[in-house]
Design a protein around this nucleic acid. Structure first.
Lengths: 125, 125
DNA sequence: CTTTGATGTCTACAGGTGTAGTCTTACGAT
DNA sequence: ATCGTAAGACTACACCTGTAGACATCAAAG
């Protein structure tokens, strides 16, 4: 649970697989990462590093391991995005939204969804 | 202008100074970074690395340099936040806002500001 | 002119990261 | 019983990063 250590970009790619597919053998992870075009060896290294960082947990299953995420995706996302918000936007969400809007990165659908979200929050509160 | 290279965390701290204070000598930068508690040498290294990465431009001014940001803050922010959005939230802003709201990271003031922002967008569009 | 202090350059070094090869071992197929 | 193969362990290696010391130089002070 303690996400003290930081997860690198490549490592997070591996974690994403476990979050998506649940506990998996390295074989499964490797298959799921075919798109990344990594050597098998690379993925095994990443798995080993994640184990060492305690971000995933290996469970012996016969001759091989089944790896499961020990770090919750939600928690990781929180850490990452709060980091960015803090560094770039004074820790607040509004300036980020504003930034995106100023750069025309918000589609109509985005705006609609945001509107719905905010209204919900506003009532709910 | 070409932000091809990535700016590290410590480097961005230096860049922030130039963005805030405008073109400055190393002396000025060092003074502005007193809070960071870095050795003078460290800051000089960071300046040198930024020059090499072409993120800042040194202009000879007598015996010393005046450094100015060659990379626009807006651009950097865009790169960074789009990177995060892409990696964590499928590239869309709404899921990020939702994430923050679900984790009670939005104050009343935030919600109000967001609401104002969105309404503006909605009309404006 | 000499000393001193600031300025930029070079060098350093450990730890993280991307990327991957090699080695050992044991299971499954023959 | 044998052998190839796959899984995990170990090793590698270049580059980035954080952090900083050492050195050369030149202008200012005395």
């Amino acid at each position: 649970m303690q996400a003290v250590v930081s997860i690198s970009d490549a490592e997070s790619r591996v974690l994403e697989v476990l979050w998506r597919e649940g506990p998996s053998t390295s074989e499964r992870v490797i298959a799921a990462l075919a798109q990344e075009d990594w050597e098998v060896s690379t993925i095994k290294t990443l798995l080993a590093r994640l184990v060492k960082k305690r971000a995933i947990r290996p469970r012996k299953e016969g001759r091989r391991f089944v790896y499961s995420a020990a770090l919750a995706r939600e928690q990781w996302i929180t850490t990452e995005s709060e980091g960015l918000l803090g560094r770039l936007f004074g820790g607040r969400v509004a300036p980020l939204v504003q930034h995106f809007s100023q750069h025309r990165k918000l589609s109509k659908a985005d705006v609609a969804e945001l509107k719905r979200l905010i209204e919900e929050l506003d009532d709910g509160e």
